[in-house]
Design a protein around this nucleic acid. Structure first.
Length: 626
RNA sequence: GGGCCCGUAGCUCAGCAUGGAUAGAGUGUUGGACUUCUAAUCCAAUGGUCAAGGGAUCGAAGCCCUUCGGGCCCGCCA
């Protein structure tokens, strides 16, 4: 029994009453009331007012009268408020025991939306020619958090990372190494992905402007990449593997893990495109253009937009054409041409698989599903819409393919200036090609150093190793929280200075609340005894905290249904606020009365577990000391 | 020219799905609280024509329309 159950019960009772009274209504809401307006409230009266031609207040009176028979242990009072609302009072003495008891269970908050059905989440998918920048981090954090949330909502989640190892960006660094004079080994033992992105890619791209021959070489390299046996393709494979290995280190550092790496080169070699191309022809989804500017091309017609070219007049496929077989593969529309091998075992003991075309007999998990979520920047919305539409034609099920779009991360004027960019506008778009970006590892390092100093101040007797561990977890938490707490359709203007803040609405505020709770439990004379909770946790600070703890599953339902990590981020913050208020105003260890001490210890313990659970959904570590 | 997104306090943002009670946080500024379970905290003050206009509604920050301001996308590039 949680608050969610209580709300559902009230809702179903109201439905029954409406049925009995012949009131026709649906879609009404039963929710927690705003502070100062009782405990639980419903707007059903307002929705009925019109059809019944009566005032909400009068309707509330009628329903509350009928509701009396449903009152019981948890809901003790119902009343018609003069504003028209139907308000319910909760007996927190009773509900507290239940909530605190539930919250220590390992799976507290778990709800069943997914019915253990499989779902694929794809995220990160950074071209293997560069290191992750702060924009990629947003993608990773959203995807990873969504994966965790969906798992909590009882989905069987598999996470994919798509590796575009045969595109133009890879060709660019191959040109740099083979023809641009860049040594294969980075100077000063620079991290290899950073070397490729910061130096080789950026400078090679610059050289195209002055050296047209180099640009011709790029086209050669690009076509050679598609022939796996070529020297160029073999060399590219070596380089991209090395970049990928470094990128994965950053991903793991950020707390993300994957189930499978899907290589674009394998999609191309598997000839999946030919299959899907034929299928689209058969289904009349595409047309061969006879005249006009696209004469000789295969195009997708669009009512609202321009026609999209899929196959050029020279017979080669365009960029979007690579995405179509891949999307179809993910949804299991095409026969799976791949074999799988283990890439490695990740830090959390989860195996990471990768596609291969070499035959083997390894037993592997299923990486295709009839429900797929792909996390991609909203700038690709137009292309993704075409793919989504195509997929619904292949697969009748609606929402099988979801493009989870998020707005980009830009740089604040100050941060752009610090990178030497001439910034006149309020924000500056990042550009990997131009070298305008903030590197993910660098931000984490800077943040870790700052957190280290803060932790050192407060823990003078702790050793360096322990402090570093704290600092690292604070820095990861800070970045992840920063990337999670904002709505997906809002641009994040990244400012280095601002992101260094460890106060206020930040991860460290929440982590600190957890550390405070942990310290109380450490110093307590005995373990909290949950069989002996008094109904006397009556201060508003305690009730607020209990209420927040009791709504964990409501938040998970919201976050999972709306694919919104932000919901959990705000919940974590609200929960921490409730605890800090409690901490400052209510004494636990020195409360005097022994049973009161025990009851409060239970509350502290319950909070500690719940906040740790909630933070885990965001990939943020709960800290025992900081 | 067409499409998508954003506009709420000085700044950064919740709230909008499901219209209803008093529009909330953080930050900033000002003041206060550590002999106390860690002050990465708490308390208080300050701060809002919810971009503008219109519409439907008993009722709009929220729904519809228009306008304005800002961002992004629209290649036989990827």
């Amino acid at each position: 029994m949680t608050i969610r159950n209580v709300l559902n019960e009230i809702k179903s009772n109201i439905k029954k009453i409406c049925l009995e009274l012949n009131f026709s209504v649906d879609n009404f809401v039963v929710e927690e009331a705003k502070p100062g307006f009782g405990d639980i409230t419903s707007n059903v009266t307002f929705l009925l007012a019109k059809s019944l031609k009566n005032s909400p207040h009068e309707i509330a009176k009628t329903i509350s009268k009928e509701y009396q028979k449903y009152l019981g242990k948890f809901i003790t009072k119902v009343e018609a408020h003069s504003s028209g609302y139907l308000n319910f009072s909760v007996n927190y003495n009773e509900l507290t025991k239940v909530i605190l008891g539930e919250s220590c269970k390992k799976n507290y908050g778990t709800i069943d939306i997914g019915d253990n059905s499989q779902i694929i989440v794809e995220h990160t998918s950074v071209n293997p020619n560069k290191s992750l920048h702060i924009g990629h981090v947003r993608n990773l954090v959203i995807g990873d958090s969504i994966g965790r949330i969906l798992e909590k909502a009882n989905y069987d989640v598999k996470i994919l990372n798509y590796i575009d190892d045969s595109g133009l960006q890879v060709a660019d660094i191959v040109v740099g190494f083979k023809h641009g004079g860049f040594p294969e080994e980075p100077p000063n033992s620079q991290k290899f992905d950073q070397y490729c992105g910061d130096v080789v890619y950026v400078q090679t791209t610059q050289k195209y402007e002055t050296d047209p021959k180099l640009e011709e070489l790029r086209n050669q390299v690009l076509s050679q990449l598609e022939d796996e046996s070529s020297d160029v393709a073999q060399f590219a494979k070596k380089i991209t593997k090395r970049v990928l290995a470094e990128q994965l280190k950053t991903c793991w550092r950020l707390g993300a893990t994957f189930d499978c790496l899907n290589f674009e080169s394998h999609i191309i070699q598997s000839k999946l495109w030919n299959t899907i191309f034929e299928k689209m022809k058969q289904m009349n989804l595409i047309e061969l253009e006879k005249d006009g500017k696209n004469a000789g091309c295969w195009v997708i017609r669009s009512k609202s937009d321009e026609d999209k070219v899929l196959v050029r007049s020279n017979g080669t496929a365009t960029y979007i054409a690579k995405d179509i077989p891949y999307a179809a593969w993910k949804l299991g529309i095409l026969d799976d041409p791949f074999y799988y091998t283990k890439y490695c075992v990740q830090y959390n003991n989860k195996a990471l698989w990768q596609t291969t075309l070499e035959k083997n007999s390894e037993v592997h998990p299923k990486f295709v599903s009839d429900k797929v979520i792909t996390v991609i920047d909203s700038r690709q919305a137009r292309l993704q819409k075409i793919i989504t539409t195509l997929m619904t034609r292949f697969k009748a099920k609606p929402n099988a393919y979801v493009h989870l779009a998020y707005e980009s991360v830009t740089l604040s004027t100050e941060t752009a200036k610090s990178l030497g960019v001439d910034a006149s506008s309020k924000q500056v778009q990042m550009s990997g090609r131009k070298g305008i970006y903030v590197n993910a590892d660098s931000v984490l390092d800077t943040l870790r150093d700052k957190a280290y100093e803060e932790a050192k101040k407060r823990n003078k007797d702790s050793d360096k190793k322990a402090l570093l561990e704290i600092a690292e977890k604070v820095s990861i938490g800070t970045i992840r929280y920063e990337m999670s707490k904002q709505d997906l359709d809002k641009i994040i203007s990244f400012d280095t200075k601002r992101s260094l803040s460890l106060e206020g609405d930040t991860a460290s505020y929440i982590q600190y609340a957890h550390a405070r709770a942990k310290r109380i439990l450490e110093k307590a004379a005995h373990e909290p005894n949950f069989d002996n909770i008094l109904g006397s946790l009556g201060t508003s600070y305690e009730i607020n905290l209990i209420k927040k703890i009791g709504t964990f599953d409501i938040q998970i339902e919201d976050a999972a249904k709306n694919l919104s990590p932000k919901v959990i981020a705000r919940y974590c913050y609200d929960l921490a606020v409730a605890f800090n208020g409690f901490y400052e105003h209510v004494k636990v260890l020195t409360a005097g009365d022994e049973s009161l001490v025990n009851s409060r210890l239970c509350l502290v313990s319950s909070f500690k577990q719940t906040i740790a659970n909630a933070l885990d959904l965001l990939g943020i570590s709960a800290l025992d000391r900081m």
